[in-house]
Design a protein around this nucleic acid. Structure first.
Lengths: 341, 341
DNA sequence: CTGAGATGTGATAACGTTATCAACATAAAT
DNA sequence: ATTTATGTTGATAACGTTATCACATCTCAG
């Protein structure tokens, strides 16, 4: 309703000039103690709060960063976002958050919109390693850090996890500890960097053990996943273990197996990439590769703020890779009475 | 690096006045077609994008709303946030998102910070019905809508779900369909509105059936929940069913029961408030009260944008209550071979 | 005391946008 | 031919801050 009080109002009430109020607020030296007190009283009395819009316009500093994640209901991304938020607050920054739905066009539009809002930096989980356009010229002058997935641009900092080696270790576990040889890779959306990298880890583990890879990237829904699994469990050489590329696929696969009455891990083993809250309450408890979601967000945000602070645009960005951990529970066959030969 | 091009730059390149560029951008009438074309070409050439900071300052419209949720890694809140984001985008608004950790002081600070950023409206999931201070005078002139939980201020719009009647229905189901009489309410944090309301539904269901309520509000962690359950399962009159107040408590309780080797629902039944992705893969599949999380976010955002559009500050806010649904699966005892008398 | 430095303060001009007004065409109406 | 309308444009002044400069006072060494 009534207009918010401005610095001018404060100055008038305190009986000083506008600049003096500004100086008091910014803790600049050379303000008489007595004057400062008068200003503080006036601020108190009017309930004055500086207008960040005007500040941003004047200072070329919005104290805002942008964060673009594919989805918010995926617990992994949500956890990243939470961590980013926490770090931003510590730096006195606000976060403009939006989702891309894994669509490069949406991602580009949202990034543009954030540029218009003059964010000082951008944290992005890019939808597509090739089609993401956040590296174009128009983004020069904005600090960008990609997390979870990189893009093809050496100038950008990126923070990611050990996708390939983590996947490889998990598949090796299935091969070496449990003697599986017919292991199927289930994933969705080949254009996602993480899915590719995890597949590559899987492929290498198979190859190094002289086994034939067998991969699907079409697990877009519960139904299709179920159909794919159906096909792979039938025939003369049925699959004996599944490796799923992320928490969604893991869920689809587990659901399908349970629906069909297939016993896990007795009849078929299952190991997934990405841990989640309920993985150790499920029956069976899931063996998974755990990603440090919080740390991913935290590290990426810190890298970004470091860049912002230095206002540095390097020729070659840093690439930070965080370790993952194979959390062995039961779905791989461990802790189970019978093992296979 | 290089400064971003401004409207003045565009005007110079196009050989027109600044106002003409402004007019073209805002689609205002009365610009000659030929001139408009020149302006568009200049915009294209320079890669010009309007500075939202300057616009906001000049127009008193930031095209931004604030969203404060307790936590982002709770799938319920994350889903709300996702929905809010979607609606905001449809309106051409950006969302500044932050978390309160269910702490009223943090909530207040974050809300203040958003006011300084001149958000046009605020969507809040308040931490505490009494201690939340978002209704104070300093927030006059900002549109506020609370979602999921209300605060004590009749002027604020609030959107929530049928907490009480949903809980009551669930408990009635345990009593009437499965003959339970020793039903324990497990929750955490009595200062949360939702927990209270759900308890009240539980209490009424018990009372109307002549049963003794039995409630705990201390399920703050897995450990304490486990201990509480231990106590209630021992003694001469052990509990035969649990009603849990939200998805976190449900998880704690289920985990504890599984750890102890208690069979659900054969030995003890379990019904929770708030559905989640994996509730139907768990063993047993969980019977829950499902909340329309997406719709909650969507409706709240729409209410807010309606207020913003009309710039209306009603004496008495709307209170919208969305229906919940009892999703009957197996943990209540349904679909189980034996029923109790 | 005189001049140099420190200290405290305010006027002014930006930052990039847009509302308002005034100016000029040109077309239509008398 | 003169008025009246209509369409098209630009100069100017804000919005609320802050950097810069300028002007006072005051302190103290010489």
């Amino acid at each position: 309703m009534e207009r918010k009080p401005t610095m001018n109002d404060v100055a008038r009430v305190a009986g000083v000039g506008t600049m003096t109020v500004s100086r008091v607020l910014n803790g600049s030296a050379n303000v008489a103690e007595e004057t400062a007190k008068r200003v503080y009283r006036a601020i108190e009395k009017l309930g004055y709060r500086p207008n960040e819009m005007a500040r941003a316009l004047r200072n070329f500093k919005s104290r805002t960063i942008g964060l673009i994640v594919p989805y918010l209901f995926d617990p992994f991304f949500a956890t990243c976002a939470h961590a980013v938020n926490t770090v931003a607050r510590e730096h006195g920054y606000s976060v403009i958050l939006t989702t891309s739905q894994d669509d490069p066009a949406t991602e580009y539009n949202e990034a543009q919109s954030m540029l218009q809002r003059h964010v000082e930096g951008l944290l992005i989980i890019p939808a597509d390693i090739r089609k993401s356009r956040v590296n174009q010229a128009e983004f020069n002058g904005t600090h960008i850090v990609t997390l979870d997935r990189p893009v093809h641009d050496a100038r950008l900092d990126s923070v990611q996890v050990q996708n390939q080696s983590g996947a490889k270790r998990a598949v090796q576990h299935l091969i070496q500890e449990h003697g599986h040889s017919r292991i199927s890779f289930l994933g969705f959306n080949r254009s996602l960097y993480t899915v590719r990298a995890r597949f590559e880890g899987y492929r290498r583990a198979m190859q190094e053990n002289g086994l034939e890879p067998m991969a699907t990237f079409d697990c877009s829904s519960e139904k299709t996943t179920s159909d794919i699994i159906d096909g792979q469990l039938q025939g003369e050489n049925p699959v004996t273990a599944f490796f799923t590329a992320n928490n969604v696929t893991t869920r689809y696969a587990l659901h399908a197996l349970l629906e069909k009455g297939v016993r896990v891990p007795e009849e078929v083993a299952l190991v997934g990439f990405d841990d989640f809250e309920l993985a150790d309450i499920l029956h069976p408890k899931l063996t998974v590769v755990r990603q440090p979601a919080s740390e991913l967000g935290r590290v990426a945000a810190n890298v970004l703020f470091e860049r912002i602070k230095r206002d540095e645009f390097p020729e070659e960005g840093n690439r930070i890779v965080l370790p993952v951990e194979l959390v062995v529970r039961r779905s791989c066959g461990c802790d189970s009475p019978q093992k296979r030969g």
